[in-house]
Design a protein around this nucleic acid. Structure first.
Lengths: 151, 151
DNA sequence: GCAAAGTAGATGCAATTGCATGTATGTGGG
DNA sequence: CCCACATACATGCAATTGCATCTACTTTGC
């Protein structure tokens, strides 16, 4: 996946390259396992959880789409359609945002809160099995610190 | 993105959860930046690089699809179609695998090698800027070690 | 106030992905 | 030898994504 040939301008050292490849591979593997757990439990994909969780955490269970976007790193056009799906499932509803005619609220419903809890009962153990069990507490903390530097 | 409520069976500790969220977010951010660099350079998406690079590294510049699959973590059906695209661009070609009628070789072409080098001139600096510059060598090494535990 | 520029969000269309299943071919047991 | 099962890869179809662009509004500068 990397390269050792030649010598132009700014090339990453091998440690950097391995960190990057490791990052891609680790998230790929872990995510695949977690998504498989969701699927096995007959639950929606992970993306839904993130949005529902952000809403639960927010005041009044409501956020503007652009706020969700910033918190989840979803692309604007993807979020717009993800909200459509959540609305169709009755997990959130859209409400007018009076102070700005362009805006809207996305509000989580009771069904949405219930779904998030149900999903967490899959997700939590899944994180524990696929991540927690492979790292000591100190390692997990250290990993989080290092990853935070990449943002 | 995580949860602190309730107390069922196996729940991840906060360090674990933060490590996992950090993993998702960090790869998201960095990947977005790297893909943007590829796009700005008018080059194909990152996935192409991985396949071409595995072929360059392999003996005779050839691998069986299932070998590429294992090395890159691509899903079988995605790889099958990615190879189609690479063939269409003349970057690889398929060859019969005599010892097993079900199999085939994927062989990198000269154009494929050239493309991989061209892509590396974008990719290398991109990795350096978005990953290398944010970590010391020791940190990068440490990060790679921790990430390796997740596979 | 009002045109120009910016911001919030939606959407048509093409490309990619995921899922289920299909088509060959190989292999192992009886 | 033959059948049941496994393996390698492809593919139809639906869902999701990416990209570019569009439609409201809002704000800014003059």
């Amino acid at each position: 996946m990397a390269d050792e040939t030649k010598n132009d301008a700014k090339r990453p050292g091998p440690e950097t390259t391995e960190a990057w490849i490791g990052l891609m591979r680790a998230r790929e593997r872990v995510l695949a396992r977690i998504e498989a757990d969701f699927k096995a439990a007959g639950q929606p994909p992970l993306g839904w959880y993130d949005v529902l969780w952000e809403l639960v955490r927010a005041d009044d269970g409501r956020l503007r789409p652009f706020e969700i976007e910033a918190r989840t790193l979803l692309a604007q056009y993807n979020l717009s359609r993800l909200i459509d799906r959540l609305v169709k499932e009755g997990l959130v509803r859209r409400e007018a945002f009076d102070a700005d005619g362009r805006g809207q609220w996305v509000v989580i419903t009771e069904a949405g809160r219930a779904m998030r809890e149900r999903m967490w009962r899959t997700y939590g153990p899944s994180i524990e099995v696929h991540v927690g069990a492979r790292l000591s507490v100190a390692e997990a903390r250290q990993l989080a610190v290092l990853l935070a530097k990449l943002r």
